[in-house]
Design a binder for these strands. Structure first.
Lengths: 144, 144
DNA sequence: ACAAGATAAATTGTGCACAATTCAATTTTA
DNA sequence: TAAAATTGAATTGTGCACAATTTATCTTGT
């Protein structure tokens, strides 16, 4: 008689990962509403603030998102006036993304978001650091 | 001149959480295709295997999902013949969920999934255990 | 007993997320 | 160098995920 111990939700690694990710994104919502950004748009803008200019392909590699997801997100960000989409002169297949002044300015408003989020999280810095390190290890070793 | 250090993707906790969750669910896909289940349907079935019978409200509390998500998922699982949806006699508002024989049998096939997933994950058991513990701590302390 | 409030699902609308396919531009190769 | 293969975005279709609203049922207070 099998007890299927491995199939219990509490014994899964993926389930808490899935729940934490979802719920943290939900925590972001009221903060990001102030910036008129969804979470996906927010991480897209973070990548843009770091890189100033990059192709859609490079962006997808950074964010782990494919064109099916990014194409509509980028069109929305363009419509909001934060991002410019233009084809590369060198290679017409490539879509080059850059920030508008409005998109650059948004970084000032966004600067308070990480701090506000930290206030919601009631764990020691030590635990948070360990968690951060293990998630990156997980990404690097298991998500190829 | 601000350097916006806190806004860098690599310094965020949420971003690796979001990526790991997404990518792990993607890893599940070929395994769950064998069972004709999506990931959301899979965790729903896991909750059913554990509880045999429960209300939609209880299921939502277990899975951290609201009726907007669960209603269509449960209708799909009913259409696939794994789950029965019926109103409670005591309280017509409540939706009582139970497994069909086919839904129960599916547990046998599902039993190999956790093991197969573990083979994809190239981290020490120690690290996995720590990660698991920290995610639960995070859920318990920060997601109220 | 009945109106007012609370509760449980369902519905509606928006925005991802991804697989699979398509299309156009570029590169490779016979 | 022309056909074949590859590449980068866009498109199409399916399935969540959640906020907000609606509907039906139940509970509570008078």
């Amino acid at each position: 008689m099998a007890d299927y111990e491995q199939l219990r939700l509490n014994n899964q690694l993926c389930f808490p990962l899935y729940v934490c990710a979802k719920e943290v994104v939900r925590k972001y919502k009221p903060l990001l509403d102030e910036l008129d950004l969804t979470y996906t748009q927010y991480i897209t803008m973070m990548a843009m603030w770091e890189h100033e200019q990059l192709s859609a392909k490079e962006l997808g590699a950074i964010l782990y998102l494919d064109s099916g997801t990014l194409t509509p997100v980028l069109k929305t960000l363009e419509k909001k006036g934060f991002v410019v989409r233009q084809r590369s002169k060198d290679d017409e297949r490539s879509l080059i993304l850059s920030l508008t002044p409005s998109g650059k300015n948004l970084q000032d408003k966004a600067a308070s978001v990480p701090e506000a989020m930290m206030k919601c999280i009631d764990m020691s810095l030590d635990d948070l650091h360990t968690l951060h390190k293990l998630l990156h290890k997980f990404m690097d070793t298991s998500l190829k």
